[in-house]
Design a protein around this nucleic acid. Sequence first.
DNA 1: CGACGCATTGCATAAATATGCGACTTCATG
DNA 2: CATGAAGTCGCATATTTATGCAATGCGTCG
Lengths: 153, 153
Amino acid sequence: MRKLQIVQSKGARHEAIRRLLQAERIGTQEGLCRALAREGFRVTQATLSRDLQQLGAVRVGGLYELPPASPAAARLQEVGDLVVSFAENDLLVVLRTQPGAAPAVASAIDAARLPGCLGTLAGDDTIFATPVRGVAVRKLSRKLRNLFGRELS
Amino acid sequence: MRKLQIVQSKGARHEAIRRLLQAERIGTQEGLCRALAREGFRVTQATLSRDLQQLGAVRVGGLYELPPASPAAARLQEVGDLVVSFAENDLLVVLRTQPGAAPAVASAIDAARLPGCLGTLAGDDTIFATPVRGVAVRKLSRKLRNLFGRELS
DNA sequence: CGACGCATTGCATAAATATGCGACTTCATG
DNA sequence: CATGAAGTCGCATATTTATGCAATGCGTCG
């Protein structure tokens, strides 16, 4: 039997990685691994290899660098708190937001230009989002959840 | 005894690498190695590792990409043909150019902001270049030769 | 609750990249 | 011509990164 894994920390870990790469001169995944360990994240090099790819980090001159986080992504993080719940049917993903916040959130989603998102329509506290043909509503729903990086009903 | 090496091709090879990386999707140094071989460049992965570093290439998403060649470097290549000869004494590097071309060449050199180059002064077909304190005139001369990528008297 | 889909992770290892060292060339100099 | 400094390169290998696979956790749905 292999060691139990404590899944569940990717979001926070990615944030930490961003911070660390900017603050320190980190040149290897092993080094990043040690730095993260100091902050309480215990993961292996394999995981970091995947994380760095997902973050779009690039190794240049023996040092890891991050492409500036897209403004769109930053905005999504900001408005994430305004989202109250997710739901979906066969056709649409339906997001509920705090009163009046729907337009702001929908605009942030649009700006992010998700590959699978055909369009959004915002009311006052409700957003309809519809996937491009061929993408399952489920899939889009998951993507949106991940974007806001939170667990919702 | 090890195999004889046919030194002497870095400049052209670097050009070829630039071209190939832009034209094809190349994801490994081995792949680049094969592509170069098709063009007649026979070098090993080790050499390419060094070349790519020198070119500032970056591997992102499993593909090699080049940072856009600095305008300064491009300009240097352009004016390189106008340079006729190099010479040096204890104090200065002296470049001769085609008549009237000195200012253009000097300006390109200045724009390149060589770390070892304190300043240049251009006449009509003659340029004086002087190194920063601590850098040998010899050193600066070599750097300039390399920049123009040609063999001159 | 049980089954299923999917995401996350570690482990082991494959794949890829970087580098120490010596060979060789080219220039320039005594 | 001998000598020496600088630059380029291949080889062998060390270092670093990527990945196939299986285990586990989480959410959903019947």
